[in-house]
Amino acid sequence: MATLQDFTGYAPTWCPGCGDWGIGMAIKTALVEMGFTPSSLMVTFGIGCSGNMNDFLNAYALHGLHGRSIPTAIGMKLANHALPVCAIAGDGDCYGEGGNHFLHACRGNHDIKVIIHDNRVYGLTTGQVAPTADKGYPSKSTPSGIIEVPIDPLSLAITQGATFVAQSFAGDLKHMSEMIKAAFNHKGFALVNILQPCVTFNKKNTYPYYMQRVYKLDGTHNPQDKISALQRAMELHEEKFPLGILYETTRKTYHEEAMNNVATPLLSQARYTDFEALSDEFV
């Protein structure tokens, strides 16, 4: 069985106190507890502080372009669905630059696990506003405050067809790894949005800010109830943050519908060679 050490690559370069440390540890903990090894899964990274985890987490990985961790993950899953596939990205990465991919991946119910570091700011480019920031949030790129209202990723995912939508908090290691495990155990598109303080550039959404506003969903919340899930998700606009599985349902995954023969991964299937028959279409 693999250990935390097996998944550990280079020492992280995140700022001391950054929420990414907790997220990185939660991912590794979940992977170990699920019995994975670095050779038994594929991971995609976007670009940003979150994407820099490429050097800190051992796995078969593709550290691609800003905003594109979801499409690369989709391609991996279609090519070899025998391996679990996880996309690790930031809020600007996934909801800004890659927003279009995000909502269409929800629609497709691609069997990928999407873990978002939601810190409401652009850290790696030193403090511009993110699409998750509250209206009026001042930043280097919006000195008079951001004009747009924040994107609501959980509602967006639920309404666009995601089959698993959860939220967690970077200050709660155990909760994060539980949510990540639940996402991996779910068959279909799974979003885990992790609220993450950026101690360097975001002076508003700090650890104390979240400590006062997060709460855990209990047995009274029914994740099968879409309307109730949406109501919880939209508490974002009242600065209340439910933690846990907001929504979960079942639907056939994209690769199950797209493949002729889902019993064998595309990678391992026999080559098609009936070229004569195919050419008859042109006679």
Partner: peptide, 17 residues
């Protein structure tokens, strides 16, 4: 954009794309 990144993901995983 999704088109080419998806194909690169599939090719990374070993399938001609």
């Amino acid at each position: 954009i999704s088109v080419i990144n998806t194909a690169l993901g599939a090719s990374f995983a070993g399938v001609r794309s």
